[in-house]
Design a protein around this nucleic acid. Structure first.
Lengths: 395, 395
DNA sequence: CCCGCCGAGAGGCACGTTTCTGCATGATCA
DNA sequence: TGATCATGCAGAAACGTGCCTCTCGGCGGG
């Protein structure tokens, strides 16, 4: 506003030339910009300047008209929109991001994606979850960027080459360096799977794995199981750990000796071998829960090798999102972790954090699991018309 | 803005100061930039200016040192790197993208992703392909952004909010508006699946679906099939169309009446119904090829319902990437489209185009398919010791 | 008649890089 | 002894927006 006074002074004095000099010098910047729009004819995109020139208005007006911001008459707004459309104008995402600080991009990290063998067993789960997360993000105007878990993967650091508004981390490891670095930079991070240790995530979403396993074991016991075995993994991620300890607690509670086999879950062949080992044991279980997706078919194949009928001789449940278990022979009961709901919840929480939406609820969200009961865990199959009221005395 | 008052005061005095006024006004730009680095203390990231100031060098030197560009002694380079590390400096991806015009981001579009039900049947294929593409991209320093097929999906256009160096399009529809818009902007586009019509893609990768189907039908015929049926889709995408016409050609060549059922491939339940219909026909086939992933289990279940033994009464092949067919009862022969190789090839082609790498070969790449022969398509299972040289007279 | 308000729009700085140009300084060479 | 040249670095112009500040004409009211 002092400048206003200055201009008034100018109006009072006849020192025109000096003012011109000043304006020219001060305006040199602007002038050189305005008088060199020849880059318009260059290859590719038309900029906002070109639109402004073509519409006969200023850059500000174009920006306001297209973003619905300023106070402009509808006629001008329409005119600018038409000109922009005619020139095929697309605002530069990079410039907008630089200016606003928001990129509309959300990172999606999956455990060691870059090195080919990532946790293949949870493949269907991840795919479903990613699909739901993508949909939810797109619905709110964000896009997902798939990023590796290791910061330094190739020659360049992909992480620092992309501007992220936030990040979704699937099953972060204890003291994940990427996560800590991100929160240090002030980037919101929401994890699928409750963070181990004191990982400082913004929020997290998870199932109640303990309750799910206990419930499932009760279901098997109610169906007549006397000795329930477990097919688990050797890795120490949260899912495996919580499920296994829940199993051990349950065994202790009901007074059953634990019967389980572990294998490296990322190896698809090792699962079949472990399933075979489990059924070859002298203390062979009469029911098995497999923690990973392929365990159902693996256990079914192993049962056939040993001449065990399912569900008559062996009850079967596995954790899977695949629909193939609906039409195996027999159909296999599965525990679904509801990846769609988890993916959606994770993204909603993250975008709320990005946009500063206040949350009434806590920043931890527990998604209920669903036990899809099929023939493999029922001693009396619904449609089979065999001997009627046989007692389910196992073995 | 005390500067404004200063200028006004000067304006009251005669000649000399006016020139100074001009200089001051012109230099204000530079002065305000250099003398206001206080935004360092602001929240969050340290900029390149802060690193330069802390290291006692210029911005240019910092940029050159970190990017390995200029001619600097190793000592300076190390020093700058240390200071940058100490300040936790991360270059702004947005600014870099704005300046260089390269974002390191590659779009990945899958048919109608935004609206939840996308082609669910090709789910495993897509997941595998995306996984391979992600790996290949990351290995070359690029990241994938998952984008919807429809340009206008939510309130904002996600496509124009992200700066892409190139795009991978999976099975683009004829005259895809997104693709044409992208190439108009000069963005390289590589498609998985040969483009229908005159879609102007930069390059494409695909299988030879026609050859694969013909080969597969020959395999079934060699195994003793007399009447081969087809389970196909009602959609008009390239894969379905090419496979179906290849089947019809084959039938014509060998003089067999076509026996097929079509169903909307995006509906997971419709597949089971169609499989049932196919086996319920009066001219029931003694061999079936299913175009989509779940057809194997669906056909197996239908065969059981009709008391048909596989492979004795019915030979089965389906196109799938799933490993569950290795351990079904019996294991089912599958046709693999090699999504990993396709995903890798697509990304390599795209990045080559982005970086201007000249190609010796053409910009179309055909990936061979693989027929994984299992029990379901062999009349003499390898390990079964049943009646030896029975003639495979079907039906 | 003057002051202030309001609608409509223009000017220009800042975001944080990359990079082109240019300026010293010593070393080499005719 | 100057001319040439490589070295080591600094200045500053873009890149294309968004937005804050300011101008200007018109108008109603004191």
């Amino acid at each position: 506003m002092p400048l206003g006074g200055c201009i008034c002074d100018r109006a009072n004095y006849p020192s025109e030339p000096y003012y011109r000099l000043a304006m020219t010098a001060a305006g040199k910047h602007q002038v050189s910009r305005t008088e060199t729009p020849r880059r318009n004819g260059r290859q590719g995109r038309a900029g906002i300047r070109d639109v402004a020139a073509a519409a006969g208005v200023s850059i500000t007006t174009v920006s306001d008209a297209l973003n619905g911001k300023g106070r402009l008459p509808e006629a001008t707004r329409r005119h600018v929109r038409e000109v922009a459309e005619r020139l095929g104008y697309r605002p530069s995402a990079a410039a907008r991001t630089l200016r606003t600080g928001k990129s509309g991009l959300i990172g999606l990290t999956v455990t060691t994606y870059g090195d080919e063998p990532f946790t293949f067993t949870e493949f269907a789960y991840f795919a479903e979850m990613a699909r739901a997360a993508t949909s939810a993000a797109l619905a709110r105007g964000y896009a997902l960027v798939i990023l590796p878990a290791t910061s330094r993967h190739s020659t360049v650091d992909v992480w620092s080459n992309v501007a992220l508004d936030g990040t979704v981390v699937i099953d972060p490891s204890d003291q994940d360096p990427v996560v800590t670095e991100l929160v240090r930079q002030g980037v919101p991070v929401v994890s699928d799977g409750r963070p181990a240790g004191s990982l400082p995530v913004t929020a997290w979403v998870d199932n109640d794995h303990r309750a799910a396993v206990l419930d499932l074991l009760d279901h098997l016991a109610a169906a007549g199981a006397r000795r329930i075995g477990l097919l688990t993994g050797t890795t120490t991620d949260t899912y495996t750990r919580l499920s296994t300890t829940a199993y051990l607690h349950w065994c202790e509670r009901v007074g059953q000796d634990p019967v389980y086999e572990s294998y490296p879950a990322h190896d698809p062949c090792a699962g079949a071998v472990a399933a075979d080992r489990l059924l070859a044991r002298p203390d062979r279980p009469d029911a098995v829960y497999g923690l990973f997706d392929p365990n159902g078919t693996d256990l079914l194949a192993a049962a056939r090798r040993y001449g065990l009928r399912v569900p008559e001789d062996l009850l079967l449940v596995c954790c899977s999102e695949s629909t193939v278990y609906a039409s195996t022979e027999p159909p296999i009961t599965t525990l679904s972790l509801k990846p769609r709901r988890i993916g959606t919840a994770v993204v909603q929480l993250l975008i709320d954090a990005i946009e500063g939406v206040e949350h009434d609820g806590p920043l931890e969200q527990v998604i209920p699991t669903e036990l899809i009961v099929r023939t493999s865990s029922q001693r009396r199959p619904p449609r089979t018309t065999v001997s009627a009221p046989r007692s389910p005395a196992g073995d």
